[in-house]
């Protein structure tokens, strides 16, 4: 995965070719293709919406509208690693707030923000379905449970060098 501040049209087209070699162009696959793009680039921008729209025969603005609906299809610049700390009650009861503070300390930005190097975005997430092992967080598609502030910091550190 690459995250640079400027994503060129060529990069987008290459990646789309790559994704579409495995998927067909049914509208039903639209979300799946957008998810792949987010996996690759970290977020969706106007170039991607235009190119995806062209391939699918869907208006690019419709692609934008659809993306903007979903929490996992960010339409604003977003970091390479999305740290999503569960904010729902079961995790909260197990001191998820302390986990957030620890991570804020570790990466130096507050909730809802992205680090300058575009590496981490710290977000809140609704129930991750890990309530029995609270508190929990996701980093991209990896889940981490039964966190303590120290454990959380350690996990983040392991990503810093990736």
């Amino acid at each position: 995965m690459t995250v640079s501040s400027k994503i060129s049209k060529k990069e987008v087209i290459n990646e789309l070719d790559n994704i579409l070699s495995k998927t067909n162009l049914d509208r039903g696959n639209l979300l799946c293709v957008l998810e792949e793009l987010v996996r690759k680039f970290g977020y969706l921008n106007d170039i991607m919406a235009v190119e995806v729209g062209k391939r699918f025969g869907v208006d690019p603005n419709e692609v934008y509208s659809v993306s903007s609906f979903y929490a996992f299809l960010p339409v604003k610049k977003s970091g390479k690693y999305k740290i999503r700390v569960c904010r729902t009650i079961s995790c909260k009861l197990k001191n998820a707030d302390n986990i957030v503070k620890a991570i804020e300390d570790e990466i130096g930005v507050k909730f809802g923000n992205t680090t300058k190097d575009m590496k981490f975005t710290l977000e809140r997430a609704n129930c991750l379905g890990m309530c029995d092992k609270a508190p929990a967080m996701l980093i991209n598609d990896k889940v981490y449970t039964e966190l303590t502030p120290e454990k959380a910091k350690e996990i983040i550190r392991s990503y810093k060098n990736k």
Binding site: D46, D59, N61, Y64, S65, S68
Partner: peptide, 26 residues
């Protein structure tokens, strides 16, 4: 969308934050 086929305005975002907007707010 239906009458004009232009798709200039769309619902963007969701929940209490949803609003009508143009492509990436451009």
């Amino acid at each position: 969308e239906e009458l004009q086929g232009v798709h200039a305005v769309k619902p963007v975002g969701r929940s209490n934050d949803v609003h009508i907007d143009t492509f990436f707010g451009q």
